[in-house]
């Protein structure tokens, strides 16, 4: 399975977003500043937005899913039960996973943004997809919610998972690191080797790298383990 961007560019107003690279199975973190083009690459990868130039080649990718930055954009039904069913999933189990047991008949828009986000992620991450694109999956979630979503994402390593986020602290263990330099997507490399080149890394990770300590990965646990290696 592979998703390849060949000289792709997307014109958004006066901005030209440029993407080149190949995504293979594993968790790919796409890091970037606000407005750099993360949501654009998510929409392009999911086939919802046609590029202005270049080619996108998908091989062996038969099923694709995008978790929108704003979870209300994914709604198609009037009740929580119907919404879960629209993904072809068993209602009670998913609602329990999202912490919404017994609320099958509620209007999805009666939920808080965080609750709705978790419900959307519970639905999206409950199924197997060849290509799974997650646009800001940690937005509106509390710390515990982010950790739980990290565990769900880590269970999807056999798919091509493109994780677009500016979250710096609570992240899953990833395989490859990509970063927007201005509006151009740059492949930093495989983890942990790429961590030394990650310009948008959290200050804690940068401090570790400056001391010559490279964490095994970017999850909280990896960073704690790396911090324990500091002697003085």
């Amino acid at each position: 399975m592979e998703l390849a961007f060949e000289g792709v560019n997307i014109r958004r107003g006066s901005i030209d977003i440029r993407i080149s690279g190949r995504f293979v199975p594993g968790i790919h973190l796409v890091s970037g500043m606000v407005g750099s083009g993360k949501s654009t690459i998510a929409a392009v990868a999911a086939g919802l937005l046609a590029p202005t130039g270049g080619h996108i080649k998908k091989s062996g990718v038969n099923t694709t899913m995008l978790s929108f930055q704003f979870p209300e954009w994914a709604l198609t039904e009037k009740t929580l039960g119907e919404e879960v069913s629209s993904y072809g999933l068993e209602v009670a189990g998913i609602l329990a996973r999202a912490g919404l047991s017994g609320r099958e008949g509620d209007d999805p828009l009666s939920l808080s943004r965080g609750e709705l986000k978790k419900l959307n992620l519970a639905c999206v991450l409950a199924k197997a997809w060849d290509l799974l694109v997650l646009d800001e999956p940690f937005g509106a979630l509390d710390c515990e919610g982010k950790r739980e979503v990290c565990r769900w994402i880590e269970s999807k390593r056999s798919s091509i998972v493109i994780l677009c986020t500016h979250e710096q602290h609570i992240l899953p263990r990833i395989d490859a690191l990509w970063e927007f330099q201005g509006h151009q997507l740059v492949f930093r490399g495989l983890v942990p080797g790429a961590l030394a080149d990650w310009t948008l890394a959290a200050p804690g990770l940068k401090a570790l790298v400056a001391r010559g300590i490279i964490p095994a990965n970017i999850s909280e646990r990896d960073l704690r383990e790396a911090a324990c290696r500091i002697r003085d």
Binding site: L48, M65, L66, W73, A74, L75, T76, K78, S86, Y87
Partner: peptide, 18 residues
């Protein structure tokens, strides 16, 4: 887009809920 991603055909049956 949501219908497309979920693989639900957005035909005449979906006009009322939409």
């Amino acid at each position: 887009q949501a219908f497309l991603l979920k693989g639900i055909p957005s035909g005449t049956r979906s006009i009322l809920p939409i």
